[in-house]
Design a protein around this nucleic acid. Sequence first.
DNA 1: GACAAAATCGACACAAAATGTCAAAGACTG
DNA 2: CAGTCTTTGACATTTTGTGTCGATTTTGTC
Lengths: 192, 192
Amino acid sequence: MKDLDLDTKQKAILDAAWTAFATYGFRKTSMDDIARGAGMSRAALYLHYRNKDDIFQTLVRHCYDKCSAALAAALNQDGAVPEVLETAVLAQGEIVVRPMLSSAHGMELMEAGTTTSSEMVHEGEARLRKIYADWLARHEKAGDVTLPGSAEEMAALITSSLKGAKVTAGSYDDYCQSVRMLAAVFGAGIAN
Amino acid sequence: MKDLDLDTKQKAILDAAWTAFATYGFRKTSMDDIARGAGMSRAALYLHYRNKDDIFQTLVRHCYDKCSAALAAALNQDGAVPEVLETAVLAQGEIVVRPMLSSAHGMELMEAGTTTSSEMVHEGEARLRKIYADWLARHEKAGDVTLPGSAEEMAALITSSLKGAKVTAGSYDDYCQSVRMLAAVFGAGIAN
DNA sequence: GACAAAATCGACACAAAATGTCAAAGACTG
DNA sequence: CAGTCTTTGACATTTTGTGTCGATTTTGTC
């Protein structure tokens, strides 16, 4: 076992970390919880990550990776602008928002996300904005949409509205409903 | 406010305790979690309960209270023996088993129940057995059922089988299915 | 309003748990 | 079996939780 196991081990750690965070919340999760969950000693865990924040940041980064991929894939589908937009925002929410709003500790984890790894979150949000912006610019060039401002501004509007829906919604179903309406309104507002 | 508020405060404490136990599990719940949840200081909480175990025991006792009441009510309904039995065991499970099997920390709480307050659990189980036994004896006297042993023995058989279903089942739905079959078999086996 | 009783809190001393580190023991390779 | 890399038990330190007590406020009664 030389290089192949590195990925496996990393995955075990991050899986265990996610499980522990979802089960106990960020505050009540100890490094020992994560280490035992990943089948190793605490000391070994410190060989891979500096501390709990470090693990959490990595988790957040991976989350944005998955989210960006899902979003980009959804936006690359063919179809009318409003429908594609709806599919895309829902695909995005499926990954980040669902676990947050359906877990008992989702709120605390969101809090932890914004405080301990605001760097990661900002960068991740920027990536999502960029994906929306590229998509919008592409469709603007093709004459499918008319934007009231730049593609970047419109992308920022979309992502900030989504964030609003997230922090407001009481449940994941609420969120989906809000977001569907949002996609419909935005889509109708910009489509030619 | 003289006597009325005692109940209110007690209720606040027990509600907060239950919420905290369900959210964090027994081990990770601190007295401060409960105190804050009940809107008081830790010191005030110690005026009402000696420690965490004490609170938990009270919670267990209240649980058996509710459970006994639901069971007795269900068994007092008119109807054929197998049907009444099914309704009763399901009503009983609705209260104790459901929260256990659907919560993320149900297993740990069950563990805590058997270790820190085995007294309470034994007494509670005995009360449930008594309720079954009384019901069985009543129907035996009326000639509705024929028991292979004493009413107490039959009651013990029922409750132990239910406990088995509880610890075996993977989900609450599994449990309900097992218990339904159990009620059908027992009912058919003793009804005249 | 004055008084006693009960309830509540801040703070303290102590206990337990979590953290981060390191020397030493294992496991694998050549 | 020597060398390298990984893992760990154990330690000192910090942080969190516990149970108690005197001071303070609130409550009910006269």
